[in-house]
Design a protein around this nucleic acid. Sequence first.
RNA 1: GUGGGUGUAGCUCAAUUGGUCAGAGCACUGGGUUGUGGCCCCAGAGGCUGUCGGUUCGAGCCCGAUCACUCACCCCA
Length: 419
Amino acid sequence: MQSIQAVRGMNDILPDAVGWWRRVENAAREVLESFGYREVRTPLAEKLELFARSIGESTDIVEKEMYAFQDRNGEWIALRPEATASIVRSYIQHGLHSDSALRKLYEIGPMFRHERPQKGRYRQFHQIDAEAFGTDSPMIDAEMMHMLSLLVERIGISGVILHVNTLGCPECRQTYKEILKGFLKEKADLFCPDCVRRRETNPLRVFDCKVEKCQALLDRAPMLIDYVCRDCRAHFDAVKDYLDKLATRYEVNPRIVRGLDYYMRTTFEVISDRLGAQNAIGGGGRYNGLVRDLGGPDVAAIGFAIGVERLIMLLQQEREQILRAPRFFLVGLGEKPLEKAFLLLQQLRGRGLEAEMDYGGRSLKSQMRRADKSGARYVLILGENELVQRQIQVRDMLAGTQELLPLDAIVEGVEGLRD
RNA sequence: GUGGGUGUAGCUCAAUUGGUCAGAGCACUGGGUUGUGGCCCCAGAGGCUGUCGGUUCGAGCCCGAUCACUCACCCCA
């Protein structure tokens, strides 16, 4: 019979890999909380309309990548393709803007996009997402990128670069878009077909094109940075200034344009050259108009998302996996000792000591083999002789030494070997 | 959605021009004399060669379809 496979692009995270996830999640929580971010847990599914209105009707994410369906009441529901929309919705719905001017939130969890899977790209993937509501200060832009860099470093990853750009505000960007379109039209026959198409759908994204010929042509294209309005320029200059003062390393990259409609002004990406085609491990930007557009107050906001799988890929390239092992392993020889070992096992656990045994009661040799494989540091061996003498062997597997200790006080006796 | 590559034991891979080719290593199980792990030695278990169909006297090897994995495009974290 054919066995059932997991859904395409959705992966199991098995016990031997879960250590990586813990490491990333723990470091992320630690850093985010130290910067004042508080965790929220929003539903995995939202009304489809939320994503259409926030991410943009004509983006690829909404047009062809969402897991969308009608529930039994006929309402259109979608699995979230990203977290920002849900967090903004939650922020508005619960009036989180009312009791404090500034609100910092984060969420860690799975996102869903129906794309063709490849390295670093899955249909269920995980993001660490941080959002700061309520201030337009360039300080928060800089702090956020500073925090992102720190987070990546804290997790144990090196060799990534922070790319920063400004998209201007909707007004100055619109002016620029027309100028760029003019440029693209002029040289239409020199660009690749994709770029010609992008000219109409989302002209800024031509800067993301991977075709060398296009990139060469773009060297002479008008740059957004030269067309932003005075306020946007002042904001961007201030952000860069704060980044310098925070000693956060970055590169200004006018080609970081981002694919979601709601971004404006500051945008950024953290990029690695060791990930293949999916080289961005994190990215984000400012989205001042979004809260208002979704029916909330007109508050400024900025946020980013990090791809956990991509982070882990990098981590695996430079760090050793830490495997979980019990501290103690109990061995029982014969029926009575085996039962006593079983009871001791539970007593040790009752004290918060990590202990395991081989319940099968096999030969000493094979129980010892299992003890060794479990990775336990100490093995407690109980045979008929020991039981009669009210004693138990405590073997240090690392040192290869063992000693006989009184059985009745063994739980206390072993307390000192906790760690 | 488009293109390329790949699909043989749990894992990594072998199998001459289609004709004992279904194998190895690791992992797993048991054993190497009375109750002691790692190393070593011995033995064992484990696969209708992704699936379905076709060509052929005969297919893991050829053809088609399908599914999956993978890399890239696209898109993005």
